[in-house]
Amino acid sequence: MHGMINRALQCFLQDTYGEDRWHAIAAAAGLGPDGFEAMLTYPHGPADAVLRAAASDLSRPREVILDDIGTYLVSHPHMAVIRRLLRFGGPSFPDFLYSLDHLHERTRLALPDLRLPLLDLRQHDGTAFTLSVTHRVAGFGHVAVGILRAMADDYGALVLLDHRGRRGEVETVSIDLAAAAFAEPRTFRLGGDAR
């Protein structure tokens, strides 16, 4: 597992539940308090152990934690970079959805060894989509739901999302676009938001 993914999990727990909870969870997962390094690669075990320990320590189902991680990646100020990189997907939420097909290539351009899940967007009509999330490791579909909800919010779009389960290595998420321009979108400037 790429350290970026492990590190995101750690930052989510630290930023959401505080250092003390993180230390408890890390210890329960057999990790030191320093945790993960984003630029290193880890076997799958440690991230899974942290997720398991977090679910038990926080008494929250694994799926809910994964969904929260997705939301955190887009909406937490510490993760502003990720939100901005996703907003490069296009000027509207549908444009963003279409850009998911290229997320793999975009990521590969920046970090060739980061293996994000393969994403495949199907459009059924003007407002109904399904997103297939393919990865060896289960759970990325729930992270995708959290990301999509937060990105819809960012674009000011109103969407209904549903995780339809996992078959083989493929998780399916249904996306219903109730309104593409429901609220005022958050500002996104190509040259940077801070001005």
Binding site: M4, R7, E37, A38, M39, L40, V81, R84, L85, F88, R106, L109, A110, L111, L190, G191
Partner: peptide, 18 residues
């Protein structure tokens, strides 16, 4: 190009931290 410049800056920051 802008996307890549931002992604690289973020990765560089992580590398520097490491």
């Amino acid at each position: 190009l802008l996307y890549l410049a931002e992604a690289n800056a973020a990765i560089r920051a992580e590398s520097l931290r490491l």
